[in-house]
Structures are given as C-alpha cells and as structure tokens.
C-alpha cells in the first residue's frame, strides 16, 4: 500500500503549522506545530475532541481564519504553491474553486433568503465567469442529481427551509463540488445528522471522491466515521498531532496513550453487554497555559518525568508513515537499539 501511495502526487503539504488566537486573556495556541501530507484521491481523517484545533487547522488552510486568529508559523503548500503567500484576491479565487469546504450544521449553513439553485449557481459563476446563467442552472441541476436529490429541477427553486437536514447537507456537498475542486474539507459533516442519514452521506462522499478524483480532509470526533471513509488518520490533542498513520494502524496498532484511550472509550459490537466504557481521566488542557512538556502528560497514566518537562518528538513507529509523538515510543526505540547492540 505504501508503494502505491508513494506514486500519487502530493496535493497538500502542511509543515509545522502554528495558529494562535490573540485574546484579552493571552495567546491561545490552538494549533501548535502540526505537519502532514495529503496525496491526491486520499482521505485524511482528523480526529480529536472539541477544542483540539482540528477545525482551526482546516480554516487556516482555506484562509477562513478570522480575527483574533492568526497563522504564526509553518507553511501550507497546495499542489506545490505556497498558500500562505497568496494575496486575499488569490485566496478568494482559490476557495470554492480548487478547494471547498462543507460544515457541521447544514440547517444554518445555507442562506435562508435565497433559493438553493441561486446559491449553487452563484458558487459556480463566481469562479467560472464565462458560463451563462442557463448553463450554470443546468450544471446545478446535474450536481443535485449527482448527490441524490430527487426532482432537482423543482428543488432548485426551493428555499433551504424547504429541505430536510440530510437533503441540505447533500445540497451543500453539491455546492462545494460544483467547481470540481481537488480538495474537499469536511468539517464534521455528519455530526448534526441522524445515523441513517450519516451513513448515506458517507456513502455519497465515497462515491463522489472516486468520480471526481479529489482528496478529502475529514474532520470528526467520531471514530466510527473515520473507520468507514478514511485512508489515513491524524489524531489531534491540544493543537498537536499525537499520532498519525493508516486507518488500520490507528485502529489495530495504536501507539499513543491518547489514541488508545479514545478507542477504549468507544462502544464496540463485540463487547460484553453492560460492560463499562473506559473514559480518559481528567479534562482537556487550558490552551492559554499549556503544559511545558507533552500536552497529554497531565492526563496520561504512563506519564514519566521527561513527559512533564519536554515536548515529545514525533518518531516513526511502524511502516506506512505511522508516526507517534510520545516519550514511551522514544524509550521503546532506545531499548530496541540497546538490545540490537547487545546482540
């Protein structure tokens, strides 16, 4: 699998990205040095709890970060181009055209006073100025058809409040994909929907990914969703990526105590009935005053002295770019080396 992936071109490369919010209380380091690469036609899941910085990171890529948020370091390269060096006009042209985004709450994400058709056509025509209104309408109708909205001709002239939640998210997806973007960022697109609709939306996204040959960044706190759609997973905690790897590695060979904790706190089909879920003790860190060492340290049951004073380096823990930022792994690595030397 790794050889196969290496052949695909790198679409997005995020290096040591740092985003801070400058509030009255001080600097909140929402994203504190994260790196990853996304190849074309790959789905990267970003999981983490609320406030772990997963949405902020996505907004930074799209240039949607608003004051008092600011990118304070690192780089974002899209198809070889430096996104952070783009002018606001270039960024406007980039958004919705080469990369699109869909959001958590489809109920409030469409403008209530314009028809769905109007909003779809607007998304297309703002980037393809040579397309006539009639052509744009035809394309909007095709898109609605593609995302499984029945009777698209009539639906185009309806307002968002005449759509159900699932239908609205479908329309949002249609709107996001109308310019054939290479990258789709989905910020918890299924969180506000009921489970049956979630399943349908995930299936739809998988189909569309294949058809349009695009990459997806899928932000969620739902590990079940990750297992279903993602190729690779980044686990975020307090602005850091603590573990990153293929979906199989993360689920079957988790290395970081936080990842293990997340998996243990999730109900499973093979669990004995009435068996208790294991929560992660403690509360998320205060990002105004993050711990000096590992951000998960204070909650970690394996916490060592070194964890409290030094941030852990990311080390490779397996094949297929499985990376984990944990002192335990460093220790393990040293022990293995020692063992090899002894032999």
């Amino acid at each position: 699998m790794s050889e196969f992936q290496a052949e695909k071109k790198v679409l997005l490369e995020v290096k040591d990205l740092k985003v801070s919010f400058f509030t009255h209380a001080g600097e909140v380091k929402a994203v504190d040095g994260i790196s990853y690469t996304l190849r074309s036609n790959e789905v990267m899941g970003i999981v983490g709890e609320s406030g772990s910085g997963k949405s902020v990171e996505a907004y930074s890529i799209m240039g949607l970060l608003q004051s008092p948020g600011k990118i304070v370091g690192g780089s974002v390269h899209f198809d070889g181009e430096d996104l952070l060096a783009y002018t606001p006009d270039q960024m406007t042209e980039f958004r919705g055209n080469r990369a699109s985004m869909i959001f958590q709450n489809p109920m409030t994400c469409m403008n209530p006073v314009y028809t769905v058709g109007d909003q779809l056509i607007e998304a297309l025509r703002s980037h393809r100025k040579d397309i006539s209104r009639e052509e744009a309408r035809k394309r909007a109708k095709e898109m609605l058809e593609q995302v499984g909205v029945n009777n698209p001709e009539r639906r185009l002239d309806q307002y968002p409040h005449e759509f159900s939640g699932g239908m609205r998210q479908r329309a949002m997806i249609a709107m996001a994909l109308i310019c054939n973007p290479e990258l789709l960022i989905a910020d918890e697109p299924t969180t506000a929907l009921d489970v049956t609709i979630q399943e349908q939306i995930l299936e739809l996204m998988k189909t569309l990914k294949g058809r349009n040959n695009m990459s997806i960044i899928f932000i969620t706190h739902n590990l079940g969703v990750v297992a279903e759609i993602c190729d690779r997973v980044s686990v975020m905690y307090a602005g850091h990526i603590v573990e990153q790897g293929s979906v199989n590695d993360i689920f079957y060979q988790p290395k970081h105590p936080y990842t293990k904790g997340l998996l243990a706190s999730m109900p499973r089909m093979d669990m004995v009935e009435h068996e208790r879920l294991i929560p992660i003790d403690g509360t998320p860190v205060d990002l105004l005053d993050p711990p000096k060492g590992c951000s998960f340290g204070p909650r970690c049951r394996y916490c060592m002295k070194v964890c409290l004073n030094n941030p852990p380096p990311a080390v490779a823990v397996g094949e297929d770019n499985h990376v984990c930022a944990c002192w335990l792994q460093v220790k393990e690595m040293l022990r293995q080396k020692e063992g090899e030397q002894l032999e």
Binding site: M62, S100, C109, P112, A123
Partner: peptide
C-alpha cells in the same frame, strides 16, 4: 454560518 459558507465558496 451561511456567511462562512459564502466565504468558503470564494
């Protein structure tokens, strides 16, 4: 939210 969507549309 719909203003954020409008911005995301470019």
């Amino acid at each position: 939210d719909y203003i954020r969507t409008a911005r995301a549309k470019g």
